[in-house]
Design a protein around this nucleic acid. Structure first.
Lengths: 116, 116
DNA sequence: CTGTATCCGGCGCGATACTG
DNA sequence: CAGTATCGCGCCGGATACAG
């Protein structure tokens, strides 16, 4: 996504996208929507996502109130991330956008097809 | 927004955000929603937006089928950009996200307030 | 396994100057 | 007024090594 790190703005869309800005956050939101996950699991699901970037993304999402970070003080270390109510609301607000995106993908697919 | 320039993905949200990726596209979408506009007018409304970046953004949005570019071959040059039906659908799909964003902004505002 | 610390390349975007 | 051409900075994100 875009480099949406913004200035002071009062646009709701901008304020919302700012929070899912970054290459992986939407995917993380989607994965966490199906239930709590541990970091290792998330990385397994998202090939190419490095530890550093994952941690950064989750920390920012936590700071934004989208996810909850539960730390168990045991050995080996165990941490579980889950969606907050606020995060779930965001996921729901994203649904219409998802529909539109799928329509766009269909368009692209049929545009790639030579003759219909 | 994020650097969402995507690889092959099947996520609708990603496909949608890819199209409004960039610092100004959501604002342009919003402005064009109220009717056709000429470049100079758009720049007047969006302080800080350079000619180059504006042209790039509009061209990309046109390529994505969001806006229509109407060129009048006169002097001085005249060009008018307007939203396509597809673009308007996107704007509508963005509405819930806008609502969520405003709720987030309210949160931030009251969090900044010392005592309630 | 979870998380931190650096280094560095790529590119989005802003500034500026110029053309038709 | 609409659009193009360069140049360069800032910062996100990938790679790697290391710590608890």
């Amino acid at each position: 996504m875009t480099r949406r790190r913004q200035d002071s703005d009062v646009c709701g869309v901008t304020a919302a996208i700012a929070v899912v800005d970054g290459k992986w956050k939407t995917a993380l939101l989607w994965l966490l929507e199906s239930g709590p996950h541990r970091p290792a699991e998330l990385r397994r699901r998202l090939p190419g996502l490095s530890e550093k970037v994952l941690t950064e993304a989750l920390r920012e999402m936590a700071a934004d109130g989208l996810v909850h970070r539960e730390v168990y003080d045991v050995l080996p270390p165990k941490t579980v991330y889950s969606l907050t109510a606020f995060g779930r609301e965001l996921a729901e607000a994203l649904a219409p956008l998802s529909d539109w995106g799928h329509r766009r993908l269909e368009r692209l697919a049929e545009a790639a097809r030579p003759a219909s």
